[in-house]
C-alpha cells in the first residue's frame, strides 16, 4: 500500500478531536452566556412553571370552564344575530 494508513489515522485523530472539542467548547461558552442573559432578562418564576400540557389541562379550574362557556354563548348569540 502506498498510503501510510497510520499517519492518515493520526491525522483523523487530530482533526476529529479538534472538531469535537471546539464544538463542545463553543457550546459551553454559548450556554454560559445564554444562561446569564436569560436569567437577567427572564428571571425565573420558580413555582408557577407547569411545563406539561397534561398537567395544565388537569389543573384547569371551574373558573376557566365558566369563561369558556361565556365565550361560546357569546359566539352563538352573535352568530344567531348575524343570521337574522
Amino acid at each position: 500500500m502506498e498510503l501510510n494508513l497510520v499517519t492518515e489515522g493520526l491525522k483523523f485523530m487530530v482533526l476529529g478531536m479538534a472538531t469535537v472539542f471546539s464544538f463542545l467548547i463553543l457550546m459551553v461558552i454559548i450556554l454560559h452566556f445564554q444562561a446569564k442573559i436569560i436569567n437577567k432578562f427572564f428571571p425565573q418564576k420558580v413555582v408557577s412553571t407547569p411545563s406539561r400540557a397534561s398537567s395544565t389541562q388537569k389543573s384547569s379550574t371551574q373558573k376557566d370552564d365558566k369563561a369558556l362557556v361565556a365565550a361560546i354563548t357569546a359566539a352563538i348569540t352573535t352568530f344567531k344575530n348575524s343570521k337574522s
Partner: peptide
C-alpha cells in the same frame, strides 16, 4: 455546562482505536 468537555474527552476512544 463545563461538564460537556468530559463528553468531548471521552470521544478520544474513537480516534485512538481508529489509529
Amino acid at each position: 455546562p463545563k461538564t460537556a468537555l468530559l463528553g468531548a474527552a471521552a470521544q478520544f476512544g474513537i480516534f485512538a482505536s481508529l489509529v
